[in-house]
């Protein structure tokens, strides 16, 4: 049997949080089997509250302090049902108690939030949970970009670059930039996308896309978007 398989909501726990031996005798008593499943004691000796400071200071993360850790967000979360270890309630907890190591260890999981806002809708304390999770993801992107998924980074950068440069989104152009950032340009000419491209050339949608243009005096808006500072 897999480690900790008797635990309810097992997928919400990390493997290394669970202690379980095949055979265990303590003080002369054999406690092999289910009774020797234990969770590691967590000792908060090292707190690093950077994440908390940053998240609550950001416009999208400022509601984090309303959280009462009730878990409604995780209960309804789309991704919690798909990705083991994805647990918005716990991410908020880690941020607030300064468990930077846990956040970083899960950098490749936290970004997988799909922004469905079920959590925000269910939260009884008016936490905008979806945006708090986004804010935590952004914090990680800035702290440990090397730990983040390449596709996530490419997606983020491609969107930002397209929006800043053109002020309007051309999806084929976005997809081309995304794929080339990952060195996957070839897929643009692969069977799936090529077929769609040919169809769009024929039916006039490709032309519409090319002619999308920019908003008037876009340069000024562009510099506002590119200015660093406010978060």
């Amino acid at each position: 049997m897999a480690k900790g398989s008797g635990i309810i909501e097992r997928s919400l726990l990390q493997d290394d949080q669970i202690m379980e031996e095949d055979n265990l005798v303590m003080d002369g008593i054999d406690i092999s089997g289910r009774w020797n499943t234990m969770l590691k004691t967590r000792v908060h000796s090292e707190r690093d509250l950077d994440s908390w400071d940053d998240v609550r200071a950001s416009a999208i993360g400022e509601s984090i302090d309303n959280c009462i850790q009730c878990g409604m967000c995780t209960a309804g979360c789309t991704v919690a049902h798909e990705v083991p270890g994805f647990n918005p309630r716990q991410f908020i907890y880690w941020v607030r108690v300064g468990r930077k190591d846990d956040l970083i260890k899960n950098a490749d999981i936290i970004w997988r939030c799909v922004g469905c806002y079920i959590c925000t809708n269910h939260c009884p304390k008016e936490v905008n949970t979806a945006e708090v999770i986004e804010s935590i993801g952004q914090w990680l992107r800035k702290q440990v970009p090397e730990k983040m998924d390449q596709a996530y980074l490419a997606n983020h950068e491609a969107y930002r670059h397209q929006l800043e440069t053109y002020g309007r989104l051309s999806l084929p152009r976005l997809q081309a930039e995304f794929l080339s950032k990952l060195g996957r340009q070839k897929e643009l000419f692969g069977p799936d996308l090529r077929q769609a491209a040919i169809r769009m050339l024929k039916d006039g949608r490709a032309l519409k896309t090319l002619l999308i243009g920019r908003p008037r005096h876009w340069n000024r808006s562009r510099s506002v978007l590119m200015e660093s500072g406010q978060t």
Partner: peptide
């Protein structure tokens, strides 16, 4: 008139700036 993209949900990480395109 003279629309811009709404941000497509992709600028939220920029915090307040995510309101710029919709506000425009």
């Amino acid at each position: 008139e003279d629309y811009s993209c709404c941000g497509a949900g992709e600028l939220k990480g920029e915090g307040l700036k995510s309101h710029f395109l919709p506000a425009r």
